[in-house]
């Protein structure tokens, strides 16, 4: 499955490294990364490919990582965005 990981928060050193480390831990291959600054906020979006069974744990670990670093990290199935924003 493909999942979209979004990271939003104040820009700090090593965000990308920390998130990528978690991805590699759960064998999630990063397919695409985009990064932007919106209203002084750092926003990174990653598209990753991983095994379905790893998704629950990846999602929980990333959320915890977000809490520890004052970031909002969401991981969601790619299909949600495709169905909501594409006809």
């Amino acid at each position: 499955m493909k999942a979209v990981i979004t990271v939003v928060g104040k820009d700090t050193v090593g965000i990308l490294a920390k998130v990528s480390a978690v991805c590699s831990e759960y064998e999630a291959n990063v397919v695409e990364v985009s990064q932007s600054v919106l209203q002084d906020m750092f926003a990174m979006i990653m598209l990753v490919e991983l095994r379905k069974k790893n998704f629950g744990e990846l999602s929980a670990t990333l959320e915890k990582l977000g809490d520890e670093n004052n970031l909002k990290i969401h991981s969601m199935h790619e299909d949600i965005f495709n169905s909501m924003h594409k006809i």
Binding site: V4, T6, S34, L38, I45, L47, M76, M84, H85
Partner: peptide, 16 residues
């Protein structure tokens, strides 16, 4: 690739 704006919009809908 999905639009950044669309992704953030969906997440904002669920979160807030």
């Amino acid at each position: 690739m999905l639009e950044t704006r669309d992704i953030l919009e969906t997440i904002n809908m669920i979160d807030n």
